[in-house]
């Protein structure tokens, strides 16, 4: 009787402990950190590698999403005019679309998480497609697969991507990702979201931020073009004239026809 009590007590304790610890373990353990967390745009900037790493439970799959805040993006669309010429016919609005969406994972996300969980957390391009609303600025939406076009447009600039297998998992726990940060990503704040999963269930998540900002001469020129527009225009003209006349003077022997 006492032996039976002791065995059932241990089992009960194990279940209770697992119920308490297992879900909480992953949520508590997951961390993420970008290095560098501040990307400085200098004159020689051409994008740079950003390392994102953190803790995760051993055996868990890891998904890393880096994105900007959703906004309404306006893009011109081309179609056939008069049945002959391809030209811009109007403007489409892509509502709730981030300007940057970079998804990386340790395994194929279709097998890692259910469609419902992916949809709730906007994980994957399918989930993103369901979130983005496409409409025409004037009149009805012209026929066409505009999300695929939008994706191709963004992927060409390397600001949208979904890559499977590029997150490295440490068997002892932890993960790391080397992301080639696209130079076309505009200055601003970007959200890093990390999700861990096991057997199709979310086991944890963590968020962090990274900042992209102009610095030095690049920032000075940008600020001047917006804050001192007249001076900026005059400087651009004067420099062009000085260089033009100076080079013309250097080539004194050069003549014309």
């Amino acid at each position: 009787m006492r032996r039976n009590f002791s065995l059932s007590g241990v089992l009960l304790a194990a279940v209770v402990l697992a119920a308490l610890i297992l879900p909480g373990r992953s949520w508590a353990e997951v961390t993420c950190q970008a290095n560098p967390a501040l990307v400085r745009i200098t004159l020689g900037y051409h994008g740079l590698p950003v390392e994102i790493k953190g803790n995760s439970a051993p055996g868990d799959d890891v998904i890393v999403k880096v994105s900007s805040l959703p906004e309404d993006l306006h893009l011109k669309y081309k179609g056939k005019a008069g049945g002959i010429f391809w030209m811009k016919l109007g403007t489409l609005i892509f509502k709730h679309a981030p300007s940057v969406y970079l998804l990386s994972s340790s395994s194929p996300i279709n097998t890692t998480l259910s469609p419902e969980i992916r949809g709730q957390n906007i994980i994957g391009l399918d989930a993103l497609q369901r979130r983005i609303e496409v409409s025409a600025e004037h009149g009805p939406l012209p026929p066409g697969d505009w999300f695929s076009q939008f994706l191709a447009f963004k992927e060409r600039d390397k600001v949208y991507a979904s890559t499977e297998g590029n997150v490295t998992i440490d068997p002892k726990g932890g993960y790391s990702l080397r992301l080639d940060w696209p130079y076309k990503a505009a200055p601003g704040k970007y959200k890093i979201e990390v999700y861990t999963a096991h057997h199709g269930m979310l086991t944890g998540s963590a968020t962090s931020e990274m900042q992209v900002e102009m610095t030095g001469v690049v920032k000075q020129i940008s600020d001047m073009s917006f804050n001192k527009r007249g001076t900026y225009g005059l400087i651009a003209i004067v420099v062009a004239l000085v260089v033009g006349f100076a080079v013309g003077n250097i080539f004194k022997g050069g003549g014309a026809h």
């Binding site: 004159l43 020129i221 073009s225 917006f226 527009r229 007249g230 900026y232 225009g233 400087i235 651009a236 420099v239 062009a240 260089v243 033009g244 080079v247 013309g248 250097i250 080539f251 050069g254 003549g255 014309a256 026809h257």
Partner: peptide
Amino acid sequence: AYYNHTVDFPLAILLLIGSVFGAQIGA
């Protein structure tokens, strides 16, 4: 530059370095 913010000065500098020499060679 004033109304549209569409003059990229560093880009113009790069272009004009090439174009002023090109113009002389052309002449």
